[in-house]
């Protein structure tokens, strides 16, 4: 982690993971900018973090639970009205190429 350059391939791989269709110009720009930003971010490794536990959260909370009680649901009409496409009371999407998870 020495602020190595982010290649166009890296950018394209990450863009696919993030479902972002980038233009060629964006790929070039991001490979430039991410390199600069990550170089700065790499300063985190300058601090003595060995043996320091990670913090996910600023709060020491534990066991926040709710009772198993039924609450209100949304009106289906309202839900489907927000969707770009609906059919047969379901939300419609283009075919799912690829595989089931």
């Amino acid at each position: 982690m020495t602020g190595e350059r982010i290649t166009r391939d890296d950018v394209e791989h990450v863009a696919r993971l993030a479902r972002l269709a980038l233009t060629d110009d964006e790929v070039a720009l991001f490979s430039e900018q991410l390199s600069v930003i990550l170089e700065h971010a790499a300063r985190v490794s300058a601090l003595p973090t060995e043996g320091v536990p990670p913090s996910t959260h600023p709060l020491p909370l534990r066991n926040v639970l709710r009772p198993d009680q039924v609450g209100p649901t949304l009106d289906r009409g309202e839900v489907l009205a927000q969707a770009p496409e609906a059919e047969d009371d379901r939300i419609r999407v283009p075919r799912i190429f690829g595989e089931e998870q």
Binding site: E87, D88, D89, R90, I91, R92, V93, P94, R95, I96, F97, E99, E100
Partner: peptide, 11 residues
């Protein structure tokens, strides 16, 4: 799944 025209989702 591979031959479908589109898919419908129930949440």
């Amino acid at each position: 799944i591979h031959d479908a025209r589109h898919s419908l989702i129930d949440y």
